[in-house]
Amino acid sequence: MPLATKILWSIVGVFGALAYGLAIGGVIRKVMARIQGRIGPPVWQPYIDLGKNLSLRTATHHGVMSFIAPIFRAAGGIGVFLLVPVVIGVPALENFSFSGDLLMVMYFIFFGSLGMALGAAEAGHPHSPIGISRGLAQMSSYELPFALAVVALAAQAGSFSIREIILAQQGGWLHWNLFANPLAAAAAFLAFLGMNMYAPFNIVGAPQEIPVGPPTEFNSQFLSLLMVGRATFAVAKIVLYMDLFLGGAHSLPEALVKTFLIYFWSIFVGAVFPRFRTEQSIRFFLGWPTLAGIAGVLLVIFSH
């Protein structure tokens, strides 16, 4: 495929991911509302919110870094998405997958939050640094089980390429890493709860506590850029998990179903749990998920 076509398809893919991420956000709000016995907003409400934020005018100036922070955030989300193959076998939807892309993806997952940390601190509201420091602490702790799971999968497939890992899982659903290495899968899916930051791990936004956390001072277009980053990042994460544990996807509908199920794992957990405190959250990730991750690595070492 020529490079120009590739770039064009990537742009289409990013916008598709954005649309899908926003739609998932709408479905989540609807599900939460139904659980609470409410009617809830329409499913397309996030699109309206995005359009609304785009048609507001900002009047604030906190400094250059706080202007760049939402761009970092969005770049983190889009960057992760562009490295992860969505549908295997369709060159247009395989994005910029290359050998060793898994390491790059793990770096990019951190990227947005680090940029956000710099910007939110400059905005000056005390809730922003509190939220950021909580977020980075939690991120460092869930990174450990996630990294162990990734190491286990890489050792199992003998490659750090996401494409190779997908291809190693072909030939029936029992070959999926979810069943081939259940310990690594458990570690990674528990880390996923922290990654998505729904309850009980919503200590960054923490409603009623540090009301919205990092984006307290961000408004209008900045906020819409943060929404874009959040939506694409969510899609990138679930696509990555689908590739690593559910054997990737051979068609777009298959990808939609699988990613939707992965995402709602964290929603259904989040709907029934109250919030952890920061130290409880960190202690949780360094406990059973990390042990499961280590066991997953050992399983690979001793069975191969």
């Binding site: 509302a33 809830g40 307290t216």
Partner: peptide, 22 residues
Amino acid sequence: TTARFDMERFGLAMRPTPRQSN
């Protein structure tokens, strides 16, 4: 915000910061 009146169905939401409120 409760189930009885549920303002979220009209797109109304509470924001804790003036920067994001309309």
